[in-house]
Amino acid sequence: MIYMEHLKKAYRVKGKPRPVLEDVTLNVPEGEFLILLGKSGSGKTTLLSVMGLLEPYDGGTYRLDGTDTAGLSAKERTDLRREKIGFVFQSYQLIPTLTAFENVEVPLGFDGVPKEERRARVEEALIAVGLEDRIHQRVTELSGGEQQRVAIARAIIRQPKVILADEPTGNLDRVNADEIMKLLQSLHRTVVMVTHDESLTAYADEVCALRAGVLA
């Protein structure tokens, strides 16, 4: 599903290149739950951004579900991201003035899905994440764990093949963190999660450590 070979990425700082990803080779089969461990500054979020086609890369190969991403235009990257990838962020990134239902509905609105179908799919997604009683509540009225569940529902609403999660439990207590991890496990999709918390590795099928831009 996700194949990277000798991937390189550098940022330009004051005109000089600063390598962030030196040599990343990775193969994530379909359905695998991979955790990328790394300290702050190790390049794990950059790697996730490259995987999510938000950042271009400078060298190497990256194939997503069989599609070679080299040379894709911005529009093609966006379309591929829309079809294949769902994101879960550390700080949920929900729209605070909207309800749980409306937040999950947003991606379907972009896709022009008819109203009745949107309603059915959103309700199904929110029930799947255990929020059947919170569907029409404003997200600011929900707990952190509930907000992250809404975010996961939004991430899966388009049935993407890949979920990319950037420290999804970073703002949660232990109990909620465990619940979110179990939820991510239950999605039966390819999940790549970035974290610095080694205690969460028990939930993963595979664990890789990123140190100074190199995958161990």
């Binding site: 999510g52 938000l54 911005a74 529009k75 966006t78 379309d79 991201r81 829309r82 079809e83 994101f87 962020f89 990134q93 729209i95 947003v106 991606p107 972009f110 939004r154």
Partner: peptide, 14 residues
């Protein structure tokens, strides 16, 4: 910007 970043992640074109 922050909401724009989320929209981008959700697949809205630049």
């Amino acid at each position: 910007t922050q909401s724009a970043a989320v929209l981008s992640a959700l697949g809205v074109r630049q």
